[in-house]
Every structure is written in structure tokens, then in C-alpha cells.
């Protein structure tokens, strides 16, 4: 039960509604974070297409210091294992909150595969495999992000709408329960 005066109460209501609106905006922004990662990956793939033609090749002394590249078969095997485990993990976590760090980690792994293939001189042949793998994993991550945060935004919008309805309903009554003095959540 609110014991504050009417102007204070109106201020609290406005703050609470503004907070809900900010929450909705945050959810909406995060809902498209996966798409940004996907766009970043597409940009990276564009740069990698044809063996990073826009970048200078590795100097011979650096190449000598790094040594021989791993066998292409092993890199491909690692790609299959990584794709399989990433897909299983992403599918298992559908419906739970996705972390942005996880998305960047996937981007990092995929960049690593591009670089390893490039170092082994086999990027041209294996470009499509890494590209398809990245598209699948980051596409799934984007879907998970969009699906989860859109649902959160929708739920918060409904809470906001309910709060506004309550405010307008109780606005003329004095001493009634405050519209936001409740823990009630929509299902």
C-alpha cells in the first residue's frame, strides 16, 4: 500500500514506466545482436574469399618461426567436431538467455579456421565449408538471440501496457493501491 503523496506517486509511476521502456529498448537492441555478429562474419568471409587478397602475405621469417601448418585433414576434422559440438550446445540452450561473449567466441573460432586454412594454403578449397559452418552456427545463434530477447521485450511491453491500464483506471481514485505496487507478472 502506498503512503506517499499524489505528486510523488505520479513521479514513481513515470519512473517505473520509463524504466520498463528502457528495458524494452535494451531487449530490442540485444535481439538484433546476433544479426550484427552475422554481418561481421559475412564481412570477414568477404575479406577471406580468395585467400585474403587484400592483405599482405606472411613474411618468410614469420612463416619460418611459426613452422609447418597442421595437415589440412586435421583442420577439416577439427572444423567438423567444432561445428557438431557448437550446434548441439546451441540447440540445447534454445530458450535460455544467450551470452554475447559466446557469439564472439564463435566468431573467433571461425576466424581461426580461416587463418589456419590460409596458412596451410588450402583456404580456396575449404572456404565454402567454413562459410557454411559459420552461417549455420551464427544463424542459429542469431535465431536464439532474436527469439529470446523478442519474447522478453514482448513480455515487458505487456507489463508496461498493464501498468498504463492500471494507472488510467486508478488515476481518479485516492488511497487505492498503486498500479505498480505489485509483483504480479503476466504469464
Amino acid at each position: 500500500m502506498s503512503s506517499s503523496s499524489a505528486p510523488d506517486r505520479d513521479e514513481n509511476v513515470a519512473d517505473a514506466q520509463a524504466s520498463l521502456q528502457a528495458e524494452i529498448r535494451r531487449y530490442e537492441t540485444r535481439a538484433i545482436a546476433g544479426l550484427w555478429l552475422l554481418a561481421l562474419f559475412l564481412g570477414l568471409s568477404l575479406a577471406a574469399y580468395g585467400g585474403f587478397p587484400l592483405f599482405p602475405s606472411l613474411p618468410e621469417n614469420v612463416r619460418a618461426a611459426l613452422g609447418a601448418s597442421p595437415p589440412t585433414g586435421l583442420i577439416s576434422l577439427a572444423l567438423v567436431v567444432y561445428s557438431f559440438s557448437a550446434i548441439i550446445l546451441l540447440l540445447a540452450r534454445q530458450g535460455s538467455e544467450p551470452s554475447l561473449r559466446g557469439g564472439f567466441a564463435h566468431l573467433g573460432y571461425l576466424t581461426g579456421f580461416y587463418l589456419f586454412y590460409q596458412y596451410g594454403g588450402q583456404l580456396t578449397d575449404n572456404f565454402l565449408a567454413v562459410f557454411a559452418s559459420g552461417l549455420t552456427i551464427l544463424g542459429l545463434y542469431s535465431y536464439q538471440t532474436w527469439s529470446f530477447f523478442s519474447a522478453q521485450a514482448k513480455e515487458t511491453s505487456e507489463r508496461l501496457a498493464l501498468a498504463r491500464r492500471r494507472q488510467s483506471f486508478f488515476s481518479d481514485e485516492v488511497g487505492t493501491r498503486h498500479p505498480l505496487d505489485t509483483d504480479e507478472r503476466l504469464p
Partner: peptide, 10 residues
């Protein structure tokens, strides 16, 4: 989507 992607990669 994942089945399609994984089969294509393989």
C-alpha cells in the same frame, strides 16, 4: 536449419 547446415558442411 542445423541439420541442413551440418550436412552441407560435411
Amino acid at each position: 536449419a542445423t541439420l541442413t547446415g551440418f550436412v552441407v558442411v560435411c
